[in-house]
Design a protein around this nucleic acid. Structure first.
Lengths: 314, 314
DNA sequence: CGTTTCGATCGAATCGTTTCGATGGTAGCC
DNA sequence: GGCTACCATCGAAACGATTCGATCGAAACG
């Protein structure tokens, strides 16, 4: 940049201003600097130096766990997409923190924890020590972190009431692995069905859900409805129930969660729709606020019950 | 770090060595430095400063397009997963470059282009000017980039031969959007079926594929097999064919590409299996080599035909 | 016992910007 | 015409580490 400044006949500081636009520079001067840069093949300020001086890298980490686990369920995508959109617009990039490992040497301006279900983070202490802002999606929130959540409990309760209204009395639930949101949802369900049976628990994965529910249905339980924790799980249950000759919703009602589309099913699931994109946007905005040093308040987003064709009278 | 050094009674340079481990430091001294750091709440070298001095950020960009597009097809995941694994192990992180936009200010040590199908990159010139190594997955390669590819043409040819062996003579193909790999695959198909009809083209998306093939089948074409460019497309074709009362593979054979599992189908697709994880590993290794300043050679990985239950005699 | 060797430690230079406060000149005002 | 404001520009001081070459002791050697 010194060379560019020299060639343009200005000082180093003026050249810097011409690139960053942080202070007014006369248009003529700016032109001259940019021309000099072009003729010297200078591609603009070195990001590494710029980062050091400004104390900011423009990189935000997002811990999602293993990709093929995190994104196996399509419901995860719109959320991260929204995060990415908002951050991009603000000039930040999103760095995947596969696991929660040693990313201590990477220049992170903030970290998003979107490991739904994980409750301990190896990197927490380190990030606190480095004063890196943290935003947690679907908590539990730790001290110093900002929490973005949805109304798990209310959603679960609404779906349970819907089933109760349809006359169901014996209801079972296929759970996710133990986690904060899962416990909230179970609580919501048990407000309506205190004695709901547990089918089992597994990740939001078609194969796993199908295997578990297959064993369960084989035992001929006398439940009339199964509440799942994701639409992927619910779709698997529908497929398996049919495979066993059960009619959905005639013989068995199935409820989901998330509100994504399941094009390979010929019915629309009854599900608790969560605002995935809003969740992502809220997360990104919290990140930006915290990076800017502003306070960020926790958020709990509402969910709505969307009644489809997978539930019917008991 | 100066404070830590002072408290430990060593020089700044020794303290740095104690943290980085680049040069031998006596164990006693290291202990003392780390203890001083702990007691002062110093979390280790500031990444931003470290980056500037070493001329490296530890961040590798990966351009995949919009997430919900890029990862809608599960076949994309194992590849990125493998990239992430290898880079993680080498201390690098993966930054998602949603689109191919202005990431000029971000500190990138290298960039991976995995936008299957995209042929122009806004950032190419800029990255060349900054001397950032680029690795392109499934081409076309531009000057200065390293190419990691699979044998699209051979795979397509193998599947076509398989159908020809089964007696099929009238074959149609559902294509991806125009792109380098798509052209290669079409060439492979036409080596066997020069007159293959085109069903249409769309992204690797269940809904889109189903809609297109639905129109096509409605016209009652007298083809006996449809070759798809991904297993997601193929699954959609199977679903739609059945919806229309066709038996697969009795009335219609369907071929896929990728070799992923489709648990919601009750048959295994006949498909061209590509080594997704190997592709990711090769990509990451090329990246690391180029970052280290070593030459990286282009790679073309083999594919294998995997015969399943979606193809049968004409 | 003198000399060589080697490992641990240190000082100082450097990485390439951004930004603060100061300076100089010009325009507007009375 | 003199005075104040203001804008564009500049010089110099950070930002916080890493690393090269030099120095200093002590161990090893003959």
């Amino acid at each position: 940049m010194a060379d560019v400044a020299a060639r343009a006949g200005v000082s180093l500081s003026t050249a810097s201003l011409a690139f960053s636009g942080n202070k007014p520079v006369s248009p003529a001067t700016r032109e001259r600097v940019l021309a000099a840069a072009a003729s010297l093949g200078y591609a603009g300020p070195n990001p590494l130096a710029s980062n050091l001086r400004r104390g900011r890298s423009g990189v935000v980490g997002i811990a999602v766990g293993r990709l093929s686990t995190a994104f196996r369920d399509p419901a995860a995508l719109p959320m991260v997409d929204a995060v990415s959109d908002v951050l991009d617009a603000a000039g930040f990039g999103l760095l995947l923190m596969g696991d929660d490992a040693e990313h201590a040497r990477l220049p992170l301006d903030a970290v998003i924890y979107d490991i739904c279900g994980r409750e301990t983070w190896t990197s927490y202490d380190d990030l606190v020590a480095r004063d890196v802002p943290m935003v947690v999606v679907e908590g539990p929130a730790w001290p110093g972190t900002t929490l973005i959540d949805i109304d798990h409990r209310g959603g679960a309760r609404a779906l349970a009431r819907h089933l109760h209204d349809l006359g169901h009395r014996r209801v079972a639930t296929l759970m996710l692995e133990p986690s904060h949101p899962q416990r909230e949802r179970e609580a919501g369900l048990r407000e309506v069905f205190p004695d709901a049976e547990v089918v089992g628990s597994c990740a939001s994965d078609h194969d796993a859900a199908q295997a578990i529910v297959s064993d369960y249905l084989a035992a001929e339980p006398d439940v009339t409805a199964i509440v799942c924790q994701s639409d992927v799980q619910a779709a698997a249950v529908v497929v398996e129930a049919r495979r066993r000759g059960l009619d959905v919703p005639g013989d068995l009602s199935v409820g989901g969660f998330d509100g994504i589309t399941t094009p390979w099913l010929d019915l629309e699931l009854t599900t608790v729709e969560q605002p995935l994109a809003d969740k992502g946007r809220a997360t990104a905005e919290a990140v930006l606020a915290r990076i800017a040093g502003e306070p960020a308040h926790d958020v709990v987003l509402p969910v709505v019950l969307r009644v489809g064709g997978s539930t019917g009278p008991a």
